[in-house]
């Protein structure tokens, strides 16, 4: 018996945002990434085809990170010693874009400085042609002190600068507007707070095509359902036509998953937890794929194998378009 599948038709759409700029567009990237534009819930191809695939960003640090799992550092080997070579390795591994995450430390034990940060960003831009997201340590003053000089030094690249939070969004938005960059707004798992930050950033005159939002997520087993629910509600509101929830979403399942005990701890775990390496990668990939299904436009990962697995999952989800 033929079954007619009911179709929803929504009045709203997610904004389309392009990350990175090529030589012709005023930057130096060899490729750009365009996300968003959906007019339906994720992967509901029969309702409305998805104009762009979810993208995968790989996270790197300006110096070999001290707080990353040994499993990750082993996977990246010596490339992780230097942001340029690390970024190139990510590109070779098949990443769509790079996310450079700064901490409070610069080289050695020195606090992170503007010179150090600008040099790291230049190294990454010099060694890869992928678009770049640059994220500060998350303390408003430190973020401003490195991100403004980075914005000035990379005018026209359409970098994504983060994190814009309630305390510092003005500075970052101004820096982005003055230098043709994008911003990443982050709010703690709450639809209304996300919406409010989007209103505040838009009020400054920042275009709709220049904001990406991170509504915050959590790892599998650590509250992912809250993150999932917030993303789902943001998407529903966006489709219903609420302009201030229509920004594409970037989330960081890699960082979250590798914070979980299940992926962090290698010894003294119950035998049924299985082999450590596999477990960590499973955790990251499962978290990431769940969030892709919730409507993430960019997932930020850490392990190259997770990249391969999540890519395969996205391929399958997108392939059903034609099936």
């Amino acid at each position: 018996m033929p079954v007619e599948i009911p179709k929803d038709s929504w009045p709203g759409a997610v904004n389309t945002v392009t990350l990175g700029a090529t030589g012709d567009q005023g930057g130096s990237r060899t490729s750009t990434v365009t996300i968003g534009g959906e007019r339906s819930l994720p992967f509901m191809h029969f309702e409305s085809p998805m104009p762009h695939r979810p993208a995968i960003a790989m996270e790197i640090a300006p110096a070999r990170p001290a707080d990353w799992s040994a499993v990750l550092l082993e996977a990246w080997g010596a490339t992780a010693d230097d942001p340029g070579s690390w970024a190139r390795a990510c590109e070779e591994a098949g990443a769509d874009l790079i996310l450079l995450q700064f901490g409070l430390k610069g080289s050695g034990d020195e606090p992170v400085s503007a010179d150090f940060a600008v040099a790291a960003v230049k190294a990454v831009l010099g060694s890869t042609g992928l678009p770049l997201v640059v994220v500060g340590p998350g303390q408003a003053e430190v973020d401003n002190s490195i991100l403004v000089p980075i914005a000035d030094a990379t005018k026209g690249e359409r970098l994504v600068l983060g994190l814009c939070e309630e305390g510092n969004y003005r500075t970052l938005v101004a820096a982005a507007m003055a230098n043709d960059h994008l911003v990443l707004g982050k709010t703690p798992m709450d639809v209304n707070l996300a919406k409010q930050l989007n209103i505040l950033m838009s009020d400054m005159g920042l275009g709709r095509d220049r904001v990406v939002m991170d509504p915050t997520t959590a790892a599998l087993g650590y509250g992912i359902e809250y993150g999932y629910s917030v993303m789902e509600r943001l998407r529903l509101a966006a489709l219903q036509g609420d302009g201030m929830t229509q920004f594409p979403i970037l989330v960081t399942p890699g960082a979250e998953a590798w914070k979980a005990k299940e992926s962090k701890v290698g010894e003294g775990t119950p035998a049924e937890w299985g082999e450590w390496r596999q477990r960590g990668m499973n955790w990251e990939a499962l978290t990431a794929v769940s969030l892709v299904e919730a409507g993430a436009h960019v997932v930020v990962l850490r392990h190259p194998e997770s990249l391969r697995r999540v890519r395969a999952a996205i391929d399958e989800l997108m392939a059903s378009e034609t099936a």
Binding site: N144, D152, R170, V173, A178
Partner: peptide
């Protein structure tokens, strides 16, 4: 640029 950003962010 240096002053403008400070004027914008308060």
């Amino acid at each position: 640029r240096s002053w403008g950003i400070q004027l914008v962010d308060g």
